[in-house]
Write a protein that binds this DNA or RNA. Structure first.
Length: 298
DNA sequence: AGAGCCATAAACACTG
DNA sequence: TCAGTGTTTATGGCTC
């Protein structure tokens, strides 16, 4: 299989990878890292790293962390022209003062909170807590923002309510998750906001350097079989060629000009599924990256 | 000017 | 009963 892919910024940093994304339209998520021998019956999907500023999968912005990426700074992963394509032409505005209101909409905050959760679903109470924890502004803000959060959850098509299993769960209310079909839009908004508010202290302005091919760039995508997946995703199992396997192996390689997205030889991923896989990782990266930013100023 | 998006506030119903 | 949750409506600001 050889599919054209948008520029991707894998590998996702291990620290941002959490087990399971039970609610993606494909029941897949980037999970634990695995070491898989090269040369197996793998399919290679390569992509010429064409600059495309609006491409959802151009994730340089996600890596504008404060000096650190646990695995590989993206600047080393992406060719220089693409870095420039994702960099705002104008010098970015200075970072807002501490505890000022975050530039992110409530939808984005909710999105980040949910994506940062292990099971990609949270009760509203935990969404509150996540926001307060990561955006100190809301610690001292009046309670009206909670109303706004609930208002957003209810009104936005991006979020879906899941009934708790009352035989097992304790507590009020439902779980909330991100609708897979709206993830690209949410990511786009996040990316846009992030780009606009990013500081000058980012890695993508630095020259790109070749990245050696190492086994560290191999990722194992694990399926999670929790209750929600069985409950909500089972109806999509038939059409998902991956849904009956335990694991999907993905390898990410980088040369000076190409990125390689390597799939197992017997998996038949269509472009849509590949994009979903990317988005899964992107969403988690988004939450992680923005958390870094939040810790650095908001 | 108008549409669309977003934040905020408020009222109300439901639930544990 | 009460607090938390979820839904709906209204309003104003901002951007395109």
């Amino acid at each position: 299989m050889s599919l054209p892919l948008s520029p991707i910024s894998f590998p996702p940093s291990p620290t941002s990878l959490s087990p399971g994304s039970p609610h993606s339209s494909s029941p897949l998520s980037l999970g634990t890292t695995s070491h898989i021998p090269e040369g197996q019956n793998a399919q290679v999907v390569s992509q010429d790293a064409t600059p495309d500023q609006d491409d959802l999968t151009c994730l340089s912005w996600l890596h504008q962390r404060n000096n650190l990426l646990p695995l590989q700074p993206l600047a080393k992963m992406m060719p220089l022209p693409q870095q420039e394509s994702c960099t705002p032409a104008e010098p970015p505005p200075p970072p807002p003062p501490a505890s000022s209101k975050p530039p992110y909409s409530f939808s984005s905050l909710i999105f980040m909170a949910i994506e940062d959760s292990p099971h990609k679903k949270l009760p509203v109470k935990d969404i509150y807590e996540w926001i307060v924890k990561n955006f100190p502004y809301y610690r001292s803000a009046s309670g009206g923002w909670r109303n706004s959060v609930r208002h957003n959850l209810s009104l936005s098509k991006s979020f879906r309510r899941i009934q708790r299993d009352r035989t097992q769960s304790v507590g009020k209310g439902s779980f909330w998750c991100v609708c897979p079909e709206y993830r690209p839009a949410l990511l786009k908004v996040l990316k846009k906001t992030h780009s606009f508010h990013s500081t000058s202290n980012n890695l993508i302005n630095k020259p790109a350097q070749p990245c050696p091919l190492t086994p560290d760039h191999e990722e194992l995508v694990a399926m999670e079989s929790d209750e929600y997946q069985q409950e909500e995703v089972s109806r999509e199992m038939e059409k998902d060629p991956l849904s009956d396997s335990g694991y999907i192996e993905l390898h990410y390689y980088q040369s000076n000009e190409f990125q390689y997205f390597v799939l197992p030889g017997d998996s038949e991923l269509d472009l849509e599924t590949v994009e979903i896989l990317q988005l899964d990782a992107e969403a988690q990266e988004a939450a992680g990256s923005l958390l870094d930013l939040a810790g650095g100023g908001y």
